[in-house]
């Protein structure tokens, strides 16, 4: 029955139709800019943005800044992700640890981590560690909560089955608890990837001498609108790219789950 509901034969149900709206939008933007209905000092046309990208690519500035930003994002993500995951793991499996730390973590979580910026600048200055710290703090909580909830929501009946079948604590964890909480953990990772880029954008805009955020602020000072728009596009591409990678992981790791099984 699910098949019947999904198999919609309308002319709009294909891979290309969702792209019509973005393409129309870009074409319209180009036309409006080209005929000076929108002045290019306010908003450069898509072609100008592409030209700016090519120019910066040829001077290798583009690669350098994207590389540095990605590096910061990933380092922060791994530090925050591992802390969040380990905390979620402990609190999901050990009651003592949950009672000791969960309430505190939930309290700290409600503070918007970007509110820490003034403090972070005072602690770390505007160096690398400040940016990595902000990303790590932002990433930590979604991964913590989803790991914790994922473990808590593993079917108790399966765990009971595992103990009847004489599985050791370790085998119980690797065979039942971890795979059972994986869907939730992956949701946490996807969400955290969004937080990762957002934290980085803010951190790099405030103070940096390299990275995409630096590109944006310095271009703003020289009124290079094409580069300003380019940086926005870059963030969008990087954000989408990380989401696609996370989705691929999901499909690979959760292929047993009917919702991800494309067979």
């Amino acid at each position: 029955m699910g098949d019947k509901l999904n198999r919609n034969t309308g002319w709009y149900n294909n891979r290309f139709f969702p792209w019509v709206l973005p393409i129309v939008f870009v074409v319209l933007w180009q036309v409006l800019g080209q005929y000076n209905i929108i002045t290019s000092t306010l908003l450069p046309t898509p072609l100008e943005v592409v030209q700016a990208a090519i120019r910066l690519f040829n001077t290798e500035e583009l690669q350098e800044h994207v590389f540095i930003s990605t590096q910061r994002a990933l380092i922060g993500f791994f530090i925050g992700g591992i802390i969040g995951f380990v905390l979620g793991l402990f609190n999901g499996t050990i009651l003592f640890s949950e009672k000791l730390t969960d309430t505190t973590i939930q309290m700290v979580r409600t503070i918007p981590h970007l509110a820490l910026i003034p403090l972070v600048i005072l602690w770390f200055g505007i160096g690398e560690s400040a940016k990595v710290f902000l990303v790590a703090v932002g990433v930590m909580f979604p991964i913590y909560i989803n790991t914790f909830n994922g473990i808590k929501n593993v079917d108790r009946k399966l765990i009971e089955m595992g103990s009847v079948y004489g599985l050791s604590r370790w085998r119980l964890f690797t065979n039942i608890i971890l795979p059972g909480s994986l869907p939730s953990i992956l949701v946490g990772i996807r969400y955290a990837l969004g937080v990762m880029w957002m934290s980085l954008i803010v951190a790099e805009t405030i103070g940096a001498d390299s990275g995409i955020g630096f590109m944006a602020t310095s271009a703003r000072e020289f009124m290079q609108m094409d580069i300003v728009v380019l940086t926005i596009v870059l963030y969008a591409i990087l954000g989408k790219l990380s989401d696609v990678i996370a989705k691929l992981f999901e499909q690979r790791l959760l292929k047993w789950n009917a919702a991800f099984n494309k067979k």
Binding site: L158, M161, N175, I176, P179, G180, L254
Partner: peptide, 12 residues
């Protein structure tokens, strides 16, 4: 034990 529900692990 064989339970009333199968209790198979869906990821294996």
């Amino acid at each position: 034990i064989m339970f009333q529900d199968d209790r198979l692990l869906p990821w294996k």
